[in-house]
Every structure is written in structure tokens, then in C-alpha cells.
Design a binder for these strands. Sequence first.
RNA 1: GCCUCGGUGAUGAAACCGGUAAACAUACAGCACUUAAAAUGCUGCGGGCAAAACCCUUGUGGGUUCGACUCCCACCCGAGGCACCA
Length: 801
Amino acid sequence: MAYQFKEIEKKWQERWEKDGAFKTKEFSSPKFYVLDMFPYPSGLGLHVGHFKGYVATDIVARLKRMQGFNVLHPMGWDAFGLPAENYAIKTGIHPEITTEKNVDNIRNQMKIAGLSYDWSREINTTEPDYYKWTQWIFLQLFKKGLAYKKILPINWCPSCKTGLANEEVIDGKCERCGTETTKKDIEQWVLKITDYAERLLDDLEGLDWPEKIKEMQRNWIGRSEGWEPVFKIKDSLFDIPVFTTRADTLFGCTYLVLAPEHPIIKDLEIDIENPDEVSLYLEKAGIKSERERISEVKDKTGVELRGVKVVNPINNKEIPVFVADYVLGHYGTGAVMAVPAHDQRDFEFAKKYNLEIVWTVKPEQGEIDKSKAFVEDGVLFDSGEFSGLGSDEARKKIGEYLSKQNLAEKKVYYKLRDWIFSRQRYWGEPIPIINCEKCGTVPLKEEDLPLKLPHIEKYQPTGTGESPLAAIEEWVNVECPKCKGKARRETNTMPQWAGSSWYYLRFIDPDNQKELVDKKKEEFFMPVDLYVGGADHAVLHLLYARFWHKFLFDLKHVSTKEPFSKLRNVGFVLAPDGQKMSKSKGNVIAPDEIIEKYGADAFRIYEMFMGPFGEAIGWSENGVKGVYKFLNRVWNFSIKNKDNKESPKELIAEINKLNKRVSEDLEKMKFNTPIAFFMEFLNFAEEKQAGKDVLERMLVLLSPFTPHICEELWEILGNKESILKQKWPEYDKNLIKEERIELVVQINGKVKDKIEAKNGLSEEEIKEIVFQSEKVKKWTEGREVVRFLFVPPSLINIVVK
RNA sequence: GCCUCGGUGAUGAAACCGGUAAACAUACAGCACUUAAAAUGCUGCGGGCAAAACCCUUGUGGGUUCGACUCCCACCCGAGGCACCA
């Protein structure tokens, strides 16, 4: 008979809630903080993919509770952001209302899946009580000079009508809507994440994170070490420093290239003999979109500044100067020394404009292939006193030689750019700043926080670079806190990523009105012991959160250098057709219908059984049916044996084996194999008489995976106290040892025979048994036995000639 | 181009530290139960053969080893990330 999952699941979910079974205790050691990346409360609800991570952390949370940990396992809502606002534009329904509705729906989805969150700690980034502290952190950043305003050519999404951070531009397109971004000069709030570049890079070392994510962050931060030689401009007081990692190729530098944005171009105006040509080029470069720049990688364009020459500091050669947009204004000094012989980009440019190519580095062996640049390290020639040196040594020697004459400096640059922090949209945290005509930028007083987001009727973005908030006169026009004169509020809002950059701290102390988090509680619960979410946040959320955390650490508001000590990525759940699930493709599978048809327990173990946790795997309803069948067998097996007292020895060995395998694999964050082990165990045990001891152990081990059915059967077996209170069982390795085993006999490494024998025999005894085998005789007859290898407990390899 | 993962039956996959390749499931086929279907149970299921014996098989080619999915070298393919970063 099929087990009645609907009644059972409802019954236990209500019981757990009534008992407050998942409430975290304050200051009860040891603690374990296991956290999911909190979701955006979309109107579609969550699909089965979101639950893969949630079920895994839930299993860990339940396991850790049984192992005696005081588990902090909270959930909340990252509810600011564009979709709610776009929905409001379309329907006129306020984001506050849609957010609340969506949150209720998703919270319910999580509850019917039996996820063991401590709901008393629920947070929502759009509640003033929460964003008060997001704003507070912003004020601290401002006070430390880490939040500043700047007119910048930013990435602009013409569809979302807002500026974007570099991290939000993927392939020249808006991360949200896929529209191609353009450049726009707007005054922006910028956070100085670059001040933390070195620490963000160095501290990755100690983290138990997937190597992939660490590597992505390293690349994003992009540290590079080199020298910055100075090129003097001929007949001028100006000079131009350039950054290079290849100081060893300096003798091969035959021209200099400036980025179109380089300020010195203006200073040189009077010397330039071809001003029309130059300004035409600059104009063209300025309007190019990010996309165009990327697509033109192969076709380098530029223009010479005729009449301007610079001097190569290493050999005093006069060389020409070009402007080209393959040199970026925002990296290094915005100027490069071009060495066409040893840099592929310079090589292409030199070929196109017929510039001199001077070879100064050759490979240690063989000749240079002069059809392309030789970019590897090698041995210097035609390089004065440095000829004959290897590249590595030459870099150092040349750098030091120049720096003695104050013609170069050792330098480190990072690819990481400051975080563009303002958005010209409505549905976000207002930036707590007042712009006064007299006093300039004035921060709000901390006691005036939260600065509430006003309720408005018109959400349409203005497209002018101002947010819709700018239209609300009574909100915008305020008195300056400093001089009491006329002033205007900052109308930009914070980006999507603000609220999620510190939310893990608020779970520790969600109702604190006086501070962001109580110091003692923070010290107790931090860091997050296990953080689980998709790999798609590798350089956005995970980098921003680390930055804010380090900042709070410097202010002594948090006690750890890093927020998340262990991170694991969950793989996508794809639609049955192998495609990504999306509303537009109509292939989204909701957990609700699966739970309705097969129950939460079946849903939960299917999510885990479908494959390795980190891999992307297609959904299969037949797979759900398969594990549902398994749960029915667990039910029937337990009911059938519920009155048995004792178990046979072989079953005791088997349950200990199961115990070992499940414990070990859970420790390694493997969730698919333990389920296979349970199935194997049941296949073995089903026909046998099982006693209460074995049944109970099985249920306790299974309970983190499928808590409802286990609770019910646990009760049926006569237990009064919830299975949640049981200790995670230890296995006895002496009981696992089998009495009889199968010897596997190989001849020259190939399996030829299998012989059953007593376990634990000596090599001599085994040898005797093995050579009695007909098959072994057949293969060894007339041949010389060179070696006899015995690999305990069961493998034998006989090497014959 | 660079970086990081991957490549095993029809499918999802398993295999600890180098030791029986394909556990566990799904699909499929056959049988039982049923008036019938579903559900359930049983059997089979990498390939060369219908079968035993035997041989082959973890992307390809080579190497190390008594023994390689696992280690080393070269290459091919796929996914994700970065991408004119000097």
C-alpha cells in the first residue's frame, strides 16, 4: 500500500512549527552557520532548480543538529530590484504589494518542502528596519572617503535606463535584460573597492571555496606587477609614464600609444601638426559602444600625433606617438610603450601603419618566427649592456637601472575598477545624502536613518540620468542639515547588490534597533560555516560582500576577515530537454506540483539523487517516480518488521556499513551516493527479518533526507520523542567486517576467476586456494609464474610468462 | 587567445589513496497479477555472437606500472568564465 505522504507531511510540518524545532539558541556551543544565497522574490515563485541548493543545506542543517551543533539556518528575501519595478510600470501595482505577495508564496513553497529554517529570523532587504543599516554602512563608507561622486563615462543600459557596474555588463550587454550597453557621462556614486584589491586577492588563499570561483575572482581583480618607465616629450616639459610588465623589451620600443581619453593630448594641442585628423579620431572613439570596441579587436585603428616625439629612456631614441583605442584610458597610465616585435597587438598595429619593428628578445633555442610577435620570455640581444640576459633578470636590471636615474618606478596595477554604485531607478535603497548649494555633499545624520523610500505612483524611469524620485518635490526639496539652507536630496538609489552585501550579518541579530548586529552575537556566529549558491555570483555578490565585510572589519564591527569560510556551488537543474528553465521557453517545473503528486520527501531526495551536487542535470519526472517507489518500499519494509525484536548478524553488518558510507559521503557534500546506498541496503534487507534496532538506525540515518516519513515511522515504532532529537549514530567498524568474501583472481591483470573464501586468510592460505582453481590451472599450465600479488582483502594478480 | 572544469551503457550516473568498470536508478524488452490499464513483483539489458568459451570497451594516440576511468605527455571535443588589462 502506498504511504499517505500528504497527511504525514502536514502533520509533522505543523508539529515542528509548534515545537519551534528549528529555532537557533543564542550562545550555545558549538555553533554551525549554514546559509543559502537568499532569493529574489519573483512573481513566478521558485522552480525546482532553486531547491537543489536549499535541500542540500537543509540536509546539512538537520545532520549538524543531530551531531549536537547549535545550527543557524535562516532565510530571507533580496527584494529590491528591477523586475518588481518593471512589473509596477506595466500594471500600476506597487512593488511593496507584489513583493509581499511573492514572499508569502515562496515562503509557503519552502515550508511545504519541509525546509528547516528558523523563520523567526526572516529578513527582507526592502524593509526600512533592514535598509536602515544598508544606508548606515553607506554613510560609514562615505565618512571614510570610500564613497565618492564622479562624472564617469559609465555603462548605460538604454532599456533599463540606468547605469551599471562593470560586473553587470556581460559581453557588452546588460546583465538583466540583454540590451547592448552604451557609454554615458553621468555623475555617479562610486565605491572605492580598488582600495581593497590587494586584500581581496590575498585573502582568497585561506578560503575553502571552489578553485574555479577563486580563480575567477583573481582574474577579475587582475593584479599585475611591472615597471613604469617615463618617456620625456621632446622640446617640452611634459613627460609620459607608461606601465609595462615587459621592461626587458624596452630596447624594442619603437613608438608610444596613448588612449583616446589621455589628458595629455589636450596639453599637446599646439604641437600637433594634424589636429583635424586627431580630433576626428577622438570623436569617433568616444561614441563607440562597448560592443563595437570588442568586435574591433582584430582591426586596430589609430592616428599619429604628428609633430610630437618622445624619448625612449633606455636608449634615448626619438620615437613617434600615436593615439589608438586599443589602449584603455582606465588601466595603467592610459599609455603604453609599443614593442611590435614582442607584443601581438603592437605587431598588428605596426604592420598596418608600417612602423619600425625591432627584435630584441630571441628564444633560448631556435630562431624567431618573424611572421608574428615573439611574446614569450627569452634571451636579450641588441640591448646594450643587457644583451645576453634572460628576460626575467633583464626586467629587474633594466627597471633598477632606470629607477636609479628617476626614470622608472616599480608598480602594481589591478584590473579591478571602482564599483559604480548609483542607479537611476526607483525600487532600491535611497542614498542617504543631501546636495546643498553651499555645503556640497552632506551626509544624513545617522539618527535620521532610515531614509524611507517614498511611496510614488509613477515609476517610469526618466531616462535623463535621474531617478523617478527626482519628480517628487516634497521629498526632494529639503533643508540642508548643516546650514539650514535650500538643498536637494540625492535621487539615485543603490544597486541590487547593496542589500545582499551584508545580509548574512543581520540573520545573527535581525531585530536589533541599535546596531547592525550585536558584537557578542556576531563574534559567536561568524563566520558562515557553509555557504551554498550558484556559481553565477562569482564576481558580483561574492566580491561585493567580501569588500563590505573587510570594510566592517576595519571599523571593528565584525570580527572575521572573511564572511564565508566554506563555499560550495550548486549545479543548475535544467529542463527535461536539457535547456535552461525559463518562463519564455515554458519549460519551468514548479516544486508545488511535484510535492502535490509525490510528496515533499520524494521531491527532496530526487533533487539529491539526480546527480552530483555541483553538476547541471536535466529534470526527469520518471526519476521522481523512482525515488517515490523507494520511499514506498521503506514504508512497507518498516511496517512489516515493526514488531521484530532482533536482527540477523548480516543485517547488523549491513546497517553499520550503510552508517559509515552515509556519514562519510555527507561530510564530503555528496548527496547522490548516500541515497544509492540506502537503496542498496533495502535491496539487501527487504527479504530478511529486520529488528527494531536496524529499522531505527535506518530511519535516523535517512531522516535528514526525508524527514517526514522518518518521523512518522519513528513514531509508529513506538518512540515518543521526535526523531530530530536523536543523536547521529556512530558505526562500529568491527561489525562491518564480512565473514566470507569473494577472491578476485587476475592473470596478468585480467580477471579470470572469482572464488568464495573465508575472510582474513593469510597470503599462503590464499595461494593454496587459488592454485586449486581449474581456471587458474588452465592459465598457468606450462607457463612460468613470475609473481604472485595479493592485495588485501580480496585481489590476487598472478603474473605469468 | 587565456583560465577553470568536464568527456564512462539508450539516459542520470557509480568506482575510496592506482586494484573486479558500469553500483544505484531511469528507459526499454519479456513474464506474473488483472477482463483491461495503471500500480506492484520477477527476469534480461556495454559491444563482438543467438549461446558457452574467448576477445574488446571509460573522447583519441602514446607512456609509466604486475595492474590505469584514476598518474604523466600530446591531441580532439564540450561547458563555464575572462577577454585589446600593456
